[in-house]
Computed example of a mutant assay.
Amino acid sequence: MNNSRVLIVLISFVLVTACNDSDMDRDILSPSISEAFPADQSTGIALDATISVVFDEELDPSSLKNVITLASSNGVVIGKTEYDSETFTIRFIPFENLEYYTVYRVNISNTIRDVYQNKIGGESLLFMTLPETEPARYEVTFSNTWSQKTHPKDFPANAHFSGLIGMTHTIDTVLFREGRLASIGIKEMAETGSKTTLISEIEQMITADSAQYILSSDSTSMYPVDVVLEFDIELSHPKVSIVSMIAPSPDWFIAVEGVELYEDGKWLSNKTVTVKSYDSGTDSGLTFTSVNEATNPFVPIAKINEAPLATGGIVPPLGTMKFKRIEKLELENEID
């Protein structure tokens, strides 16, 4: 036998065997997620959170463009994607903070590949951000719609509203309540527009911690002029109540009672409430300019459903109060 031929055959056998062994060792498994933040179904996630997805092996950087998307019911979150090759981690960094108490979905693309070009199966995760607990600042605008056109019956020549007066308060506190007797403060406000006693009553509620802030405007509202005031509100006292005298009148007033500005774990951006009309039950006059005729004893506060404000048992709205969340702008002077 020719020794050179034997040597060639042996070398060829070794090379073929080596190639077969390499094919046997080749990774054919798809990369998998070993850890993710936020974890699926997690809650209380901070608004500045970065989405991190850790894989169990090295990934092909060329397959990682736009592979993580983040969205809520309000739309897609814009951000950037980064890859850490040492820890096999893909991070999605939002350009802006997330929204309070909102469910987000993280979608992980099935185009992600490892260095052997094995693709991942598509994945998705859900998480919820933390609720808002910081105080908020609002602007409330009272838009008066009471006019000769809307309420033609005996419309008074000097129709107007007294200055707004109200408070922020706890969920189980009221400024007044339909079906209950009026306080002296409500009586004086409804009959004369005076706020002095009602402010004292609110201050007593503040001392008892059932109310927190007084809301008060100095101006009266003449159609079609709006009245605007700003106020702070905190989670401990999340409701707002505001009243104002219908003037002239025996003892009638408008109100929004127990308006909730905190819903679903966050402060509302806007809320518009139609004011309701009430009889305080302290004066028995029947027309806008009736002479004083004290009701003795008082009768419970009731919604107005009769003329001259009502037509056919229905009182057209006298106005609306629009609550709009605003931001405090604090300007700091810089000293060179």
Rank of each mutant, 00 (worst) to 15 (best):
F161D: 00
M189I: 04
F127H: 01
S124D: 13
K187Q: 15
R113V: 04
L98M: 07
K195W: 07
Q117P: 07
N118Q: 14
F95L: 10
I171T: 15
T141L: 01
Y100A: 03
E132L: 12
S85W: 08
L181T: 10
T173Q: 09
D172F: 11
P152E: 08
R91E: 12
N118A: 07
Y101R: 09
I184K: 13
S85Q: 12
V174R: 08
S162C: 06
E139I: 10
T102W: 02
Y104S: 06
K149W: 13
L164I: 04
N118P: 01
S85H: 08
G122C: 02
E132I: 11
I184R: 11
F95M: 05
E86R: 13
G185H: 04
V106Y: 01
D154F: 07
T168N: 05
A136S: 15
E96D: 14
I120A: 15
T111F: 12
R91H: 14
H169N: 05
L126V: 13
N110D: 15
F127N: 03
A136C: 09
L125I: 10
F142V: 05
N110L: 09
D154H: 08
I93R: 12
M128Q: 15
A190Y: 03
I90G: 09
I171L: 12
K195D: 12
I186W: 08
F155H: 06
F142S: 09
K195Y: 08
G163C: 01
V115W: 03
